[in-house]
Protein backbone atom coordinates (compact mmCIF):
# COMPACT_ATOMS: atom_id res chain seq x y z
CA UNK A 1 0.00 0.00 0.00
CA UNK A 2 1.94 2.90 -1.34
CA UNK A 3 0.20 6.15 -0.84
CA UNK A 4 1.87 9.40 -1.78
CA UNK A 5 0.15 11.54 0.74
CA UNK A 6 0.82 9.05 3.53
CA UNK A 7 4.39 8.88 2.38
CA UNK A 8 4.64 12.61 2.67
CA UNK A 9 3.09 12.60 6.11
CA UNK A 10 5.38 9.89 7.35
CA UNK A 11 8.42 11.71 6.13
CA UNK A 12 7.18 14.69 7.93
CA UNK A 13 6.45 12.61 10.99
CA UNK A 14 9.49 10.48 11.24
CA UNK A 15 12.41 11.71 9.25
CA UNK A 16 14.98 9.18 10.21
CA UNK A 17 12.82 6.11 9.66
CA UNK A 18 12.07 7.16 6.08
CA UNK A 19 9.22 4.68 5.64
CA UNK A 20 5.60 5.33 4.91
CA UNK A 21 3.06 6.06 7.60
CA UNK A 22 1.99 2.49 7.99
CA UNK A 23 5.58 1.48 8.33
CA UNK A 24 6.13 4.20 10.86
CA UNK A 25 3.14 3.06 12.82
CA UNK A 26 4.33 -0.50 12.51
CA UNK A 27 7.65 0.61 13.88
CA UNK A 28 5.87 2.17 16.78
CA UNK A 29 4.01 -1.06 17.39
CA UNK A 30 7.22 -3.00 17.21
CA UNK A 31 8.56 -0.82 19.95
CA UNK A 32 5.79 -2.02 22.18
CA UNK A 33 7.93 -4.42 24.13
CA UNK A 34 6.97 -7.14 26.58
CA UNK A 35 7.28 -4.57 29.35
CA UNK A 36 4.33 -2.65 28.02
CA UNK A 37 2.19 -5.79 28.03
CA UNK A 38 3.31 -6.64 31.53
CA UNK A 39 2.54 -3.12 32.70
CA UNK A 40 -0.93 -3.28 31.22
CA UNK A 41 -1.44 -6.68 32.83
CA UNK A 42 -0.27 -5.35 36.19
CA UNK A 43 -2.62 -2.39 35.88
CA UNK A 44 -5.55 -4.64 35.00
CA UNK A 45 -4.71 -6.94 37.89
CA UNK A 46 -4.56 -3.99 40.26
CA UNK A 47 -7.89 -2.68 38.99
CA UNK A 48 -9.37 -6.11 39.61
CA UNK A 49 -7.84 -6.25 43.07
CA UNK A 50 -9.17 -2.79 43.86
CA UNK A 51 -12.58 -3.83 42.61
CA UNK A 52 -12.67 -6.90 44.84
CA UNK A 53 -11.69 -4.83 47.86
CA UNK A 54 -13.94 -1.86 47.25
CA UNK A 55 -17.07 -3.04 45.48
CA UNK A 56 -19.93 -4.26 47.62
CA UNK A 57 -21.91 -5.92 44.87
CA UNK A 58 -21.17 -9.62 44.52
CA UNK A 59 -21.53 -9.44 40.74
CA UNK A 60 -19.04 -6.58 40.57
CA UNK A 61 -16.63 -8.58 42.70
CA UNK A 62 -17.05 -11.49 40.33
CA UNK A 63 -16.27 -9.21 37.41
CA UNK A 64 -13.21 -7.88 39.21
CA UNK A 65 -11.98 -11.42 39.78
CA UNK A 66 -12.40 -12.10 36.09
CA UNK A 67 -10.30 -9.00 35.43
CA UNK A 68 -7.56 -10.42 37.64
CA UNK A 69 -7.60 -13.68 35.72
CA UNK A 70 -7.53 -11.83 32.42
CA UNK A 71 -4.42 -10.00 33.56
CA UNK A 72 -2.91 -13.43 34.09
CA UNK A 73 -3.79 -14.38 30.53
CA UNK A 74 -2.12 -11.26 29.21
CA UNK A 75 0.96 -12.07 31.26
CA UNK A 76 1.17 -15.60 29.91
CA UNK A 77 0.81 -14.50 26.32
CA UNK A 78 3.39 -11.76 26.76
CA UNK A 79 5.91 -14.03 28.41
CA UNK A 80 5.32 -16.59 25.71
CA UNK A 81 6.89 -14.12 23.27
CA UNK A 82 10.20 -14.78 25.00
CA UNK A 83 9.97 -18.38 26.08
CA UNK A 84 8.01 -19.71 23.15
CA UNK A 85 10.68 -18.46 20.79
CA UNK A 86 13.43 -19.96 22.91
CA UNK A 87 11.76 -23.36 22.94
CA UNK A 88 11.30 -23.25 19.18
CA UNK A 89 14.91 -22.34 18.58
CA UNK A 90 16.09 -25.09 20.92
CA UNK A 91 13.90 -27.68 19.25
CA UNK A 92 14.49 -26.86 15.61
CA UNK A 93 18.00 -25.37 15.88
CA UNK A 94 17.03 -22.66 13.51
CA UNK A 95 16.18 -19.03 13.68
CA UNK A 96 12.56 -19.37 12.78
CA UNK A 97 10.26 -16.76 14.21
CA UNK A 98 7.74 -19.39 15.22
CA UNK A 99 6.40 -19.32 18.75
CA UNK A 100 5.90 -22.57 20.57
CA UNK A 101 2.61 -21.73 22.20
CA UNK A 102 3.20 -23.14 25.69
CA UNK A 103 2.16 -19.96 27.46
CA UNK A 104 -0.83 -19.64 25.20
CA UNK A 105 -1.96 -23.13 26.16
CA UNK A 106 -1.73 -22.06 29.80
CA UNK A 107 -3.93 -19.14 28.86
CA UNK A 108 -6.54 -21.53 27.60
CA UNK A 109 -6.52 -23.34 30.92
CA UNK A 110 -6.94 -20.08 32.78
CA UNK A 111 -9.82 -19.12 30.50
CA UNK A 112 -11.52 -22.43 31.21
CA UNK A 113 -11.06 -22.00 34.95
CA UNK A 114 -12.38 -18.45 34.74
CA UNK A 115 -15.46 -19.63 32.85
CA UNK A 116 -16.13 -22.44 35.31
CA UNK A 117 -15.72 -20.05 38.21
CA UNK A 118 -18.01 -17.51 36.60
CA UNK A 119 -20.69 -20.12 35.97
CA UNK A 120 -20.58 -21.52 39.49
CA UNK A 121 -20.24 -18.08 41.01
CA UNK A 122 -23.24 -16.65 39.17
CA UNK A 123 -25.30 -19.65 40.21
CA UNK A 124 -24.27 -19.14 43.83
CA UNK A 125 -25.06 -15.43 43.67
CA UNK A 126 -28.49 -16.18 42.21
CA UNK A 127 -29.15 -18.74 44.92
CA UNK A 128 -28.11 -16.19 47.51
CA UNK A 129 -30.30 -13.53 45.91
CA UNK A 130 -33.34 -15.77 45.98
CA UNK A 131 -33.15 -16.10 49.74
CA UNK A 132 -31.88 -12.69 50.73
CA UNK A 133 -33.16 -10.52 47.86
CA UNK A 134 -29.84 -8.77 47.67
CA UNK A 135 -26.48 -9.29 46.05
CA UNK A 136 -24.65 -6.95 48.37
CA UNK A 137 -21.90 -8.68 50.25
CA UNK A 138 -22.62 -6.73 53.41
CA UNK A 139 -25.99 -8.45 53.51
CA UNK A 140 -24.18 -11.74 54.01
CA UNK A 141 -24.03 -10.98 57.71
CA UNK A 142 -25.71 -13.88 59.48
CA UNK A 143 -22.39 -15.12 60.79
CA UNK A 144 -19.81 -12.89 62.36
CA UNK A 145 -16.83 -13.27 64.62
Amino acid sequence: MDNDSLYFLSNWANVESGGNALLTMWNIFKHISIHHYLTVAAIIFTIGFYGVIVRRNAISILMSIELMLNAVNLNFVAFNQIWGLKITRAAFTSNEDVLTPVGQIFTIFIIIIAAAEAAVGLAIVIAFYRQRHSVKVEDADLMRW
Binding site: P101, I108, A119
Partner: peptide, 23 residues
Protein backbone atom coordinates in the same frame (compact mmCIF):
# COMPACT_ATOMS: atom_id res chain seq x y z
CA UNK B 1 -37.35 -15.35 33.45
CA UNK B 2 -34.28 -16.63 35.25
CA UNK B 3 -33.96 -19.31 32.57
CA UNK B 4 -32.03 -16.77 30.55
CA UNK B 5 -29.33 -16.70 33.17
CA UNK B 6 -29.15 -20.44 33.03
CA UNK B 7 -28.84 -20.51 29.26
CA UNK B 8 -26.21 -17.78 29.37
CA UNK B 9 -24.18 -19.63 31.98
CA UNK B 10 -24.41 -22.89 30.07
CA UNK B 11 -23.47 -21.13 26.89
CA UNK B 12 -20.36 -19.68 28.53
CA UNK B 13 -19.28 -23.08 29.79
CA UNK B 14 -19.82 -25.02 26.60
CA UNK B 15 -18.54 -22.24 24.39
CA UNK B 16 -15.32 -21.98 26.32
CA UNK B 17 -14.76 -25.73 26.37
CA UNK B 18 -14.68 -25.59 22.58
CA UNK B 19 -11.47 -23.61 22.91
CA UNK B 20 -9.65 -26.87 23.53
CA UNK B 21 -10.49 -27.99 20.02
CA UNK B 22 -8.14 -25.39 18.60
CA UNK B 23 -4.80 -26.59 20.04
Amino acid sequence: PVKFYLVAILFVVFDVEAVFLWP
